[in-house]
Design a protein around this nucleic acid. Structure first.
Lengths: 164, 164
DNA sequence: CGGCATCCTGTATGATACTG
DNA sequence: CAGTATCATACAGGATGCCG
């Protein structure tokens, strides 16, 4: 990862609100948020599933579900099974499913560097191969930490060829 | 994402220590940890760079740097510029650079769904194309949220064909 | 400069009890 | 079952000051 020029231009100033990561952290900041998200990816939709499977208390679960609905990551929708009363289910929105690389990248690092006794494996339904989170460029090259340059226009004085 | 069978076998039990994500969260749990990590990927190596660029206090920075060295994500190594006194620099280990997909996935989601005024762009040094974090299987197929099955052996009673 | 120690505040989260 | 309300605790992280 090379960012020498950009760092010089920044003059050791914090990125603050100019950093999209900090914005993402506003949504998946906390442990409980990520656990709720994990269970959403694992197929949970109902309140009791989230509490039990994430191992959180009712209060924490309710708070996080509300936060994530407000953040547009989950959608709360009413449904009704025949002969039963009206309920709600929580389903991932498009923005929510876009968090898949974040969740899987966390899982992948844990499997690589601090594996639990029974590491879960992600499998592609179509072909049965293992699933991985990769960093690649639009031309299809694998990209390592030293092969990337970050740039941004605006207050840091960095020319950026790629922005609209 | 389909995990119906696995969820049934779990019987609504929390994954707890069997989840590699929870283990990863032990390392990159907090906002400050991720900001320190971000600056490491952006090229920071010295204490003052981390504090200033991440926008954290000395105390928080010191704590996080120590935690991450202990976690094996950063390495503290002495160095000495000629005519100056001995210093330390903090560099990413192999385990640290393996966190790149986590960091970039957070950045990517922020750029997609809550972009800052001047979104940074990641560029591949080799070919100049934009860099993205992808979820793919070993056969090279792009994998969406509904194309993945998670499985694990052990206490949840899930057969797993892929583990050693 | 590169930290560590201390105090203080806000928040995340658990425990418990209560409601529709 | 699906939450809400209240209290208690632990920790994140800022502010300040000290130290080599």
């Amino acid at each position: 990862m090379k960012l020498g020029g950009a760092l010089a231009a920044r003059e050791n100033q914090p990125l603050g609100r100019y950093c999209p990561m900090e914005r993402t952290l506003g949504v998946v900041n906390t442990r409980s948020a990520i656990l709720v998200l994990r269970e959403a990816f694992y197929g949970a939709t109902r309140f009791e599933q989230f509490t039990a499977r994430a191992g959180l208390t009712d209060a924490t679960t309710a708070t996080k579900l509300r936060d994530m609905v407000e953040a547009g990551v989950l959608e709360k929708r009413p449904y009704q099974e025949p002969g039963r009363r009206r309920r709600h289910e929580y389903v991932l929105t498009a923005a929510g499913t876009d968090l898949m690389p974040v969740v899987f990248a966390l899982l992948q690092w844990g499997n690589q560097h601090d594996p639990p006794p029974y590491p879960p494996v992600l499998t592609h339904n179509g072909c049965g191969e293992k699933v991985a989170v990769l960093t690649r460029c639009a031309a299809g090259h694998d990209v390592g930490p030293d092969d990337v340059t970050a740039s941004a226009p605006g207050p840091f004085g960095l020319a950026d060829p790629g922005l609209p």
